[in-house]
Simulated assay, not measured.
Amino acid sequence: MAKKRYWLFIGWVAVIIVGLLSRKYPFLLPAFLGKYPGDALWAMMVYLACSFIRPAAATGRLAASALAISYLDELSQLYQAPWINTIRATTAGHLVLGSAFSWYDMLAYTIGIVLVAVVMERVKGIEPSS
C-alpha cells in the first residue's frame, strides 16, 4: 500500500505542476480549449487525492467522491459573500475555490475524472501481483 501511495503522490504532484503550467502558458494548448484543461487537471488532482486517502477503494467510488468534491466546490462559487471573496482573491484561494460558477467547468471536471479513472483502471491491470 505504501508503494501505491508513493506513486499516487508523485502523480498528484505531477498533475498540479501540469495544471499550473497550463494556466501560466495557455498558448501551448489550442486556444479553443480555453482554461478548461486546467479545470480537468484540477479534478484529476482531486481524484488522485481521494485515491491516496483510500487506495483500496473501487474506481467508481473514487470517481463519485472526486466528482462530488469537484461539483460542490463549483457550486460553492454561487455563494459570493465578502469574506469568502477575500479568500478567493488570493492566489491559493482562487486555485482551490475558483471564482465564478460555470457549467462548462463541471463538464471539464467530469471529463478529467473520467480520463484519470480510465487510466487508473488500466494501470491496475498491469500492476505486478504481490
Rank of each mutant, 00 (worst) to 15 (best):
A31E: 15
A31K: 09
L33M: 07
G34P: 08
K35Q: 07
Y36T: 11
P37E: 07
D39Q: 04
A40L: 14
A40Y: 07
W42G: 05
A43V: 01
M44N: 02
M45H: 12
M45G: 09
V46C: 08
V46F: 07
Y47K: 02
L48Y: 11
A49G: 07
A49M: 06
C50D: 03
S51I: 14
F52V: 11
F52G: 01
R54A: 14
A57E: 00
A58S: 09
T59S: 14
T59E: 04
L62W: 09
L62N: 01
A64K: 15
S65T: 14
A66D: 02
A66V: 13
L67G: 01
A68E: 00
A68C: 06
A68P: 04
I69L: 10
S70I: 06
S70T: 06
S70P: 01
S70Y: 11
Y71I: 15
Y71T: 05
Y71W: 13
L72W: 11
L75S: 11
Q77Y: 10
Q77N: 15
Q77W: 04
Y79A: 04
Q80N: 15
P82L: 06
P82H: 10
W83S: 08
I84R: 11
T86L: 13
R88H: 08
R88Y: 05
A89Y: 08
T90Y: 09
T90M: 02
T91W: 13
A92V: 15
G93K: 14
L95V: 08
L95R: 02
L95D: 07
L97E: 06
G98N: 04
F101K: 09
S102V: 04
S102R: 10
W103E: 06
W103Q: 08
M106W: 06
M106D: 05
A108L: 09
Y109N: 00
T110W: 01
T110R: 02
I111T: 10
I113F: 01
V114S: 00
V114G: 00
V116W: 01
A117P: 02
A117H: 00
A117W: 03
V118A: 05
V118L: 08
